[in-house]
């Protein structure tokens, strides 16, 4: 193109959304502050368990949103990668005597590799085929966990799993998992603000166009699946120490839909959305405990209603309300 620089031109572009302005920073600081205080407010073990479950859900929802929201790939197998991370890391500790941290890293890696391989195998498939194939992968993974009894103890499960040394206290364990969630959030945020974000958006919007720009859609689908699944695997590796036991039913194929609901209800294709969705959907059933077993009905209803009437989820509704407020103040 023209070699003549035109400084006027670049100056008239909309600002690059690279660094947050002061409201964003204040919001982030406030969020971190609340996270730090929460376990000191919720002092009973039930409340702290809820916090840990919420933090694990945040990590899972972020991983799925990378695949589903940012790369546009219909992944219905999130539970499988959560399970792979959990079983690989735990079995490495229990059977091979590997330390917790390297085992956690290897479990994360295993989930990522499996995610990448699944994506490469199904790379030619259109959206719905991928959805079914990933669901099928979750079914296979679940059945393997149930039936490979010599390794996993099958439905009886593995018992007596302890958190990593130094994190046996639930408050410290919560801080550890919350720190992982914050790290995952920050890493994804940086990654998506880089050209990788534009590349995944192109892949999501139109593969033929993307290829015409030099983008290798195969490679980037595998990338998104590998990274998103590794994130799920990380959550999986952190889970058994909290639960103390490991049974295949914690990774049933239908559990993927719970994570899916968090991403959709919070706001697909944003980073704030899955965090919001995971927190709300972890806490909401507890607030509605009066309705007992009906909580999953509320889950399903929320999922359907949000898709039909609030496609941007909570985050989208929040943005719209903020925009309206600004307009009203200006006018």
């Amino acid at each position: 193109m023209s070699d003549v620089p035109s400084p006027v031109a670049a100056a008239s572009l909309p600002a690059a959304e690279c660094r947050p302005g002061w409201p964003g920073r204040a919001g982030a600081a406030a969020t971190l502050g609340i996270v730090a205080i929460l376990p000191l407010v919720l002092r009973d073990s039930y409340g702290r368990g809820l916090l840990i479950a919420g933090a694990l859900n945040v990590i899972q929802a972020l991983g799925l949103d990378l695949i589903l929201g940012f790369a546009g790939q219909l992944d219905l197998g999130a539970a499988a990668f959560y399970g792979i991370g959990a079983y690989v890391s735990t079995l490495l500790v229990m059977l091979a005597g590997v330390g917790f941290w390297p085992a956690l890293a290897l479990g994360t890696l295993a989930a990522g590799v499996m995610g990448g391989v699944l994506a490469l195998l199904t790379v030619r498939l259109r959206g719905h085929y991928l959805a079914i194939a990933s669901l099928g992968f979750a079914v296979i993974t679940y059945q393997v966990l149930l039936n490979w009894i010599s390794l996993t103890q099958g439905p009886l499960g593995l018992y007596g799993i302890t958190p990593p040394a130094g994190f046996t206290d639930p408050v410290r364990l919560f801080y550890l998992i919350a720190a992982c969630a914050v790290l995952v959030f920050a890493a994804l945020r940086a990654l998506l603000a880089s050209p990788v974000g534009a590349t995944l958006a192109a892949l999501r919007e139109d593969e033929i166009s993307a290829a015409s720009l030099g983008i290798d859609c195969r490679r980037w689908k595998a990338f998104a699946f590998a990274v998103g699944s590794a994130v799920a695997g990380l959550a999986g590796g952190l889970y058994p120490g909290f639960a103390g036991t490991l049974v295949p039913d914690a990774f049933a194929p239908a559990d993927s839909f719970g994570v899916l609901a968090m991403v959709i209800v919070g706001g697909i294709g944003t980073l704030r959305g899955p965090v919001l969705g995971a927190v709300v959907l972890t806490l909401a059933p507890e607030l509605l405990r009066g309705i007992g077993d009906a909580r999953m009905i509320v889950y399903g209803l929320a999922l359907t209603l949000v898709v039909l009437f609030m496609p941007g989820g909570l985050d989208g509704a929040w943005r719209m309300a903020a925009a309206r407020l600004r307009r009203n103040q200006a006018g």
């Binding site: 909309p14 050209p195 919007e205 166009s209 030099g214 983008i215």
Partner: peptide, 18 residues
Amino acid sequence: RLFRHLSVLENVLAGFYT
């Protein structure tokens, strides 16, 4: 075949992939 939901600028920026 533009990326319809992306901004005009984002469409062009995606073209700098290589």
